[in-house]
Design a protein around this nucleic acid. Structure first.
Lengths: 306, 306
DNA sequence: TTGACATAAACTCACTTTGAGCATAATCCT
DNA sequence: AGGATTATGCTCAAAGTGAGTTTATGTCAA
């Protein structure tokens, strides 16, 4: 760096993590029979990264992208062994939210449930525990921790914290950390490890997906992103189920409702819906007016107001 | 994207926002007499983006970088008109925290107080209000809002929210939004606007700096990053002054202390310091042991624990 | 028609976390 | 010794959260 005006050429590629929720299941857009995330070269014709990706996604899905945010930029060598051609590849990844999945048609991209790739990340009450395989993961990680006596204590602590074992709480945001830990412990085929824990993907696409899930789970707590994925009007339970799908946890019903309406993010449409059984629910819509004001929630700093 | 295996070549560049705090003033490393952030081409010799930047920074500052995180990746065309050469430039920016500033020596990079670039971002009690010029900014923005009758209400709302005017609270995290708004209103020389509001920088470096400040201010609330900037042992007041410098606000003393010690991030060294006047303060050190466990704070989701 | 079921929506209550300020302790300076 | 000055401890009300309970309003099946 500094004053050198040397090389620095690279091949630039965009990679998209596009998420939608259908039937209370979060899905991600894929190509190659679910083995890869959609990607392609960054063309000079694009006005900007964001705009180029937005255009492309909308033409592919037929739906507007409500939310689009840069995730991370990787250079191969970060992990992917890559080629030794001297020319580096730079991958710029994005997270986007789509309202509905496109009707399946010829040449349309496929959508896969994201818990197919990370079964252990689904900890909702209904979720099949054997599918998640937390027990098997815990056993493998324990063996890994014990295999190096001088690192044992440190590794055990890390495993317990990351996976919420031995009295620690499960933290739904640690998606990437869990994946990286399993990668280190060679439980991930992409790292040359044993298969059996979720569907693998090409290259480091599964890691990018983990990054996207983690970002979305963190964001949903302080910014109203869930609405970008909901239809125009919805019941409170539908909203709750969507959030639960994304964070992979079951939520407390009345507290969830209280939280939503004290944020004043939604308003009644006046209609009700005759879902299945039970008392019909009121329908709500998102209030975009307050969007900006509530966009950023709040600090946790003890500010002195004098 | 999709199946095309076309061009996508670009020139890759790294840009660093390196922050330190000296004498209760946050500083950023610059080149070219404070008119630019340090940057340079991304060399193929670097193992990875992160590693390459870390090596470089440590050789330049003479101090290890405690914290280094990717900020954002820009392609020119996002704003910078750039050249029409067909070859795009991609800038990958990083935020790093350094413990002390390097002793000024020949060829050493300079450090500048970051409020020279954003005087209005310093709202600590001592801060000179005329330097910030919030009144002048508010006046200019009001004129800008009024200049388009059909956008007036919307613009006023946005101005009030972003700058904490007319009854709204100041939100210290909105550094980038404030800069972008002033940019739109042509108060920023980089956009061809009037000078007079903070020192300008080359290209969009001031915007990158704003992104870095915003990220750091947001992060400091839920992750113990302030310690990466502190010396090995410190008093609680020193810690508070450092945080105040970064967030640009004065904090409530006893509540700040309570918050710190209930997080159990620090421990007494047993020593005390004879600062200037007053009762000597106990010295503390950071407890790296709990680092991982406290690394990620907490959710705000109403989880059902059944 | 009626009652069993299912879901919605409102309300309660104990407990924890915050914002704000006051009280006391230990130094230095004059 | 007495005042100034900073550190540290304590209190208290208000707001926010976790966990339930109660009441309302519909469908479905006997």
């Amino acid at each position: 760096m500094g004053n050198s005006v040397a090389t620095g050429f690279a091949q630039a590629e965009l990679i998209a993590v596009l998420a939608a929720v259908t039937a209370n299941e979060p899905r991600v857009m894929t190509v190659q029979a679910g083995k890869a995330l959609p990607s392609g070269p960054f063309e000079s014709s694009h006005r900007s990264l964001q705009a180029g990706l937005r255009d492309w996604v909308e033409s592919q899905t037929g739906h507007p992208v409500g939310f689009l945010e840069q995730l991370y930029t990787f250079a191969d060598g970060d992990r992917d062994p890559g080629a030794g051609t001297g020319m580096r590849r730079i991958s710029i990844s994005y997270l986007g939210l789509v309202r509905e999945q496109a009707a399946p048609g010829a040449g349309q991209p496929e959508w896969h449930g994201w818990y197919e790739y990370f079964p252990w990340e689904d900890r909702r009450d209904g979720a099949d525990d054997r599918a998640g395989g937390l027990d098997r993961i815990a056993a493998s990680l324990t063996a890994w921790a014990d295999s190096q006596p001088h690192l044992r204590a440190e590794r055990h602590q890390r495993v317990d914290f990351t996976f919420g074992l031995n009295g620690m709480d499960w933290n739904e945001d640690l998606v990437l950390q869990r994946y990286e830990l399993m990668y280190e412990a060679a439980l991930i085929p992409e790292a040359g490890g044993q298969p059996g824990f979720g569907q693998p993907m090409q290259g480091d696409h599964r890691r990018i997906l983990a990054t996207g899930i983690a970002r979305l789970r963190a964001k949903i707590k302080y910014r109203p992103v869930a609405f970008e994925i909901m239809p125009g009007s919805f019941t409170l339970l539908q909203l709750q189920r969507t959030v639960e799908a994304l964070v992979g946890l079951s939520l407390h019903k009345s507290n969830f409702r209280r939280q939503i309406d004290q944020q004043e993010l939604i308003e009644e449409t006046g209609e009700t819906t005759a879902e299945t059984r039970g008392r019909p629910a009121m329908l709500f819509r998102y209030r975009p007016s307050v969007l900006e004001a509530r966009q950023m929630a709040g600090t946790r700093l003890p500010i002195s107001r004098s």
